[in-house]
Simulated assay, not measured.
Amino acid sequence: MVGNGDLTGFPTGASFEGDLADLIACPSCDLVYSIPDVTSHERAVCARCHTILISPRRKAGKQLIALSVTVLILIVAACAFPFLSIGAAGLHHDASILQTALAFSGSLSLLSLAVLFFIVVIPVIRLSLLIYVLAPIIRDRPPAPLARQAFALSEALVPWSMAEIFAIGCAVALVKLSDMADVVYGPAAWIFAVLVVLVVATDRLMCRYSIWKSLEN
């Protein structure tokens, strides 16, 4: 659906005579549509599964870069400040995300480093690639070298960027841990909460079709 209209879908097995560049496939259900004219603040939505296919917004590139830079700064801050403080039986300990990842040995060290990779390293790589791709576009310049490959890699890393899953897991674990010890959320925990919201906002704001078309031009 585009605004108040409908997308034109092609049934399974149907043939199309024309330029394939005039077609778009739903990433969720693979239904193929003719690309409609979508103005700013309108959306093209799959009629079968309601996935948003095209959603252009004015100055979205600048907003995406601003959000990405903000998230990168928050990631650095979240790694530097204590994530939580635990007190029990007169003992008190502060722990940051980096300290926790480096505190274990043996097989647990591999697990903690894997968690650090999924919640810190991959989001940093993904957002850095997004900034690299969008920076020339918002200045009306030719795409950067290997921009298409960089954006494809950024999209491939989306399922492996698990900051929000980590936040939910921490919330559940800390609720159970609070019955055995005094748990105080540190600055990094609140920074991480804001970071997760901004990551979700970045994904919601991004129109991947518009970015691909800009890279083609």
Rank of each mutant, 00 (worst) to 15 (best):
residue 3 G to V: 05
residue 6 D to V: 11
residue 14 A to P: 00
residue 17 E to H: 07
residue 22 D to Q: 12
residue 23 L to C: 09
residue 24 I to R: 01
residue 26 C to Q: 03
residue 29 C to W: 09
residue 33 Y to P: 01
residue 33 Y to K: 01
residue 34 S to V: 09
residue 39 T to W: 10
residue 40 S to H: 11
residue 41 H to C: 05
residue 41 H to R: 10
residue 48 R to D: 03
residue 50 H to E: 09
residue 51 T to V: 03
residue 55 S to V: 01
residue 59 K to G: 14
residue 59 K to C: 13
residue 59 K to Q: 15
residue 60 A to R: 04
residue 62 K to N: 03
residue 62 K to W: 02
residue 63 Q to Y: 09
residue 65 I to C: 06
residue 67 L to H: 02
residue 69 V to S: 13
residue 77 A to I: 11
residue 78 A to D: 02
residue 79 C to N: 15
residue 79 C to D: 13
residue 81 F to H: 04
residue 82 P to D: 01
residue 83 F to L: 15
residue 84 L to R: 00
residue 86 I to Y: 00
residue 87 G to P: 00
residue 90 G to D: 03
residue 91 L to K: 15
residue 92 H to V: 12
residue 92 H to L: 11
residue 93 H to S: 06
residue 95 A to H: 06
residue 97 I to T: 07
residue 98 L to D: 05
residue 99 Q to F: 03
residue 99 Q to G: 15
residue 100 T to P: 02
residue 101 A to N: 02
residue 103 A to F: 02
residue 107 S to H: 06
residue 108 L to D: 10
residue 111 L to V: 10
residue 113 L to F: 12
residue 113 L to Q: 15
residue 115 V to D: 04
residue 116 L to P: 07
residue 116 L to W: 08
residue 117 F to Y: 14
residue 121 V to F: 15
residue 124 V to C: 12
residue 125 I to F: 03
residue 127 L to F: 14
residue 133 V to Y: 00
residue 135 A to C: 10
residue 135 A to T: 14
residue 140 D to F: 08
residue 141 R to T: 15
residue 142 P to A: 06
residue 143 P to S: 04
residue 145 P to A: 05
residue 146 L to I: 01
residue 148 R to P: 03
residue 150 A to K: 07
residue 155 E to C: 12
residue 156 A to F: 13
residue 159 P to L: 08
residue 160 W to F: 15
residue 161 S to K: 06
residue 161 S to D: 11
residue 161 S to F: 07
residue 163 A to D: 07
residue 163 A to K: 04
residue 164 E to N: 14
residue 165 I to G: 08
residue 166 F to V: 09
residue 167 A to P: 02
residue 167 A to W: 07
residue 168 I to H: 12
residue 173 A to C: 06
residue 173 A to F: 11
residue 175 V to F: 12
residue 176 K to L: 15
residue 176 K to M: 14
residue 179 D to S: 10
residue 182 D to G: 11
residue 182 D to N: 12
residue 182 D to K: 09
residue 183 V to C: 01
residue 185 Y to A: 14
residue 186 G to M: 00
residue 187 P to A: 09
residue 189 A to F: 12
residue 190 W to D: 08
residue 191 I to Y: 04
residue 192 F to P: 04
residue 193 A to H: 06
residue 198 L to R: 08
residue 203 D to P: 00
residue 211 I to C: 05
residue 211 I to F: 05
residue 211 I to Y: 06
residue 214 S to V: 04
residue 215 L to A: 03
residue 216 E to F: 07
residue 216 E to T: 09
